[in-house]
Lab assay of single mutants.
Amino acid sequence: NQASVVANQLIPINTALTLVMMRSEVVTPVGIPAEDIPRLVSMQVSRAVPLGTTLMPDMVKGYA
């Protein structure tokens, strides 16, 4: 089972991601792979992401 990136806190719209905002977790459906966490740092979210939400490619500007 592949771990995905999950929000560790509420991430407001247009916030630049930092390591403390993200954790890896095995979830369904699968989201952005956990190994991409270093690449996500400083990228902005395109919408508010609630705590515990799996990050999907369309939620991060410039990821897809």
Score class of each variant (00 low, 15 high):
V5T: 06
T18E: 14
L51F: 13
L19Y: 11
R47H: 14
R47T: 12
T54A: 05
R47L: 13
V49D: 02
V20W: 08
V6P: 00
G52H: 14
N8R: 08
T53K: 07
Q9W: 09
T28M: 14
P38S: 11
A16I: 11
I32E: 00
R23D: 05
M59L: 06
V41Y: 05
L19G: 13
E25A: 11
V49E: 02
E25R: 10
G52V: 01
G52W: 05
A48H: 11
T28Y: 14
P57Q: 07
T15S: 13
A3M: 10
T54H: 03
Q9P: 01
T53E: 14
V20T: 08
N8F: 05
T53P: 01
A64N: 15
S4N: 01
S4G: 05
M22P: 00
A48P: 11
E25T: 10
A34I: 08
L40P: 00
D36E: 13
L17F: 02
A16F: 11
G52A: 07
L19K: 09
D58G: 11
T18M: 15
S42F: 07
P12M: 12
G31K: 01
S42G: 15
L19Q: 10
M56C: 04
P29F: 04
R23H: 05
V6R: 04
T18G: 04
I32H: 01
E35R: 15
R23G: 07
I11S: 01
E35L: 10
A7P: 02
T15Q: 07
G62F: 09
L51P: 15
P33M: 09
V30K: 15
S46H: 13
I11Q: 01
S46F: 06
M22W: 02
T54M: 03
S4E: 01
A3N: 10
V49C: 04
V41Q: 06
M59Y: 10
P38A: 14
V26F: 05
Q44D: 05
L10C: 05
A48M: 11
L51H: 12
I32D: 01
M56G: 05
E35Q: 15
T53D: 09
L51M: 08
V20K: 09
G52P: 02
A3H: 15
P12L: 06
I37N: 01
T28E: 12
R39D: 15
M21L: 07
R47C: 04
P12D: 09
V45A: 06
V26I: 14
S42E: 12
V27F: 03
V45F: 00
G31E: 00
T53I: 15
Q44C: 04
V26W: 10
I37Y: 03
S4Q: 01
G62R: 06
A16R: 10
S42K: 10
P33Y: 14
G52R: 04
L55H: 00
P50Q: 11
A64C: 04
S4D: 00
A64P: 11
V20G: 10
E25K: 13
M59H: 10
L10H: 11
Q9K: 12
T54G: 02
A3W: 13
